[in-house]
């Protein structure tokens, strides 16, 4: 932990330390007035100290789940747990939250409204000001402290918003699309910031639709579709559940692979074929057949990308 803050003291009296508190969601369900089950028995864990990515298409239920975790929306069924016990209002007060919409108070100065938000949580004016200035400095916004939020670029507005969520050493972070609208270097800066919080044992749950980003960043993934969890685990675990394909490169035309039993040719183009192999026997038959016809330059397993897995599980 490289960062010390002047605002919060250590973990609350009821729990020995902030480190090690997992954020769990069990059979969480939200039924709206019109009978729509926006979130349907969603269960997953955002472990302490890890970045958990929350992915899914539009309307998959990501925002609704996050709003229930934060207590902004009532839970229809199921529960949210923090540190092994049902979550309390006091727990939530220590969470950092970034809602789906941005903007804050468009016509108020950046510094003033961040200090205001911190003071609402009970931080003294002086301590709030010191932390906000430090955070603005870190994110390169020190000169914009007096500017109205609406005058900032979208990326900078996003930074201000994340400062609002990160103030006061939160014990868990729930971030709805924290990377949307950020350029690659800004994403890196944001990731560094989040890593500091995971380093001190904080669970970070963030939603995103940028799969490449999620694949690169997070230690755990939860994929949502139609309000349900369709896949969850580490990226490696998910890749194992995905269908592994092989790339075969031979000397001549590879069209013959279509006739090999147990081999499903996904795509053949000249001497390159993309195949799915049903079992070990199929691998042997394919290689034997290839060697009979001439040189074999390559036979490599292709690990599926998250984008492929995502397409498979949400198809």
């Amino acid at each position: 932990m490289t960062r010390t803050t002047s605002i919060s003291t250590a973990g609350p009296a009821g729990r020995a330390t902030a480190r090690g508190a997992d954020l769990e969601v069990r059979d969480l369900t939200r039924v709206f007035g019109d009978g729509l089950r926006a979130v349907d028995r969603v269960t997953f864990t955002a472990p302490s100290g890890l970045l958990t990515g929350f992915v899914g298409g539009n309307g998959a239920g990501k925002t609704t789940t996050m709003r229930m975790i934060m207590g902004v929306l009532a839970v229809s069924e199921g529960e949210v747990r923090f540190g092994g016990a049902p979550i309390t209002a006091a727990d939530r007060r220590t969470f950092g939250y970034m809602p789906e919409e941005r903007g804050l108070y468009p016509k108020q100065a950046v510094l003033d409204q961040l200090v205001y938000l911190a003071r609402l949580r009970g931080v003294s004016a002086r301590a709030a000001r010191a932390e906000v200035l430090e955070q603005l400095e870190r994110l390169g916004l020190a000169e914009r402290a007096k500017d109205h939020v609406e005058k900032l670029s979208l990326g900078n507005q996003q930074r201000v918003q994340i400062i609002a969520a990160l103030m006061g050493s939160p014990r868990a972070l729930v971030l709805d699309e924290p990377f949307s609208g950020l350029d690659p270097s800004a994403v890196d800066g944001m990731v560094d910031l989040l890593r500091e919080h995971t380093a001190r044992g904080v669970p970070v749950l963030f939603s995103s639709h940028q799969l490449d980003l999620v694949e690169r960043l997070c230690e755990r993934l939860v994929i949502l579709k139609g309000g349900r969890v369709v896949a969850a685990g580490t990226p490696a675990e998910l890749q194992e559940t995905g269908t592994v394909r092989h790339r075969l490169v031979v000397g001549g035309d590879a069209g013959w692979v279509r006739g090999v039993p147990g081999v499903h040719a996904v795509d053949v183009e000249g001497s390159v074929a993309l195949v799915e192999l049903a079992d070990e026997g199929a691998t042997r038959r394919l290689l034997t057949a290839a060697l009979e016809r001439g040189p074999v330059h390559e036979l490599t397993p292709l690990r599926p990308t998250l984008a492929q897995i995502f397409r498979e599980v949400t198809a």
Partner: peptide
Amino acid sequence: QDSQDAVG
């Protein structure tokens, strides 16, 4: 439970 602490 949290009364001794500013947090929460």
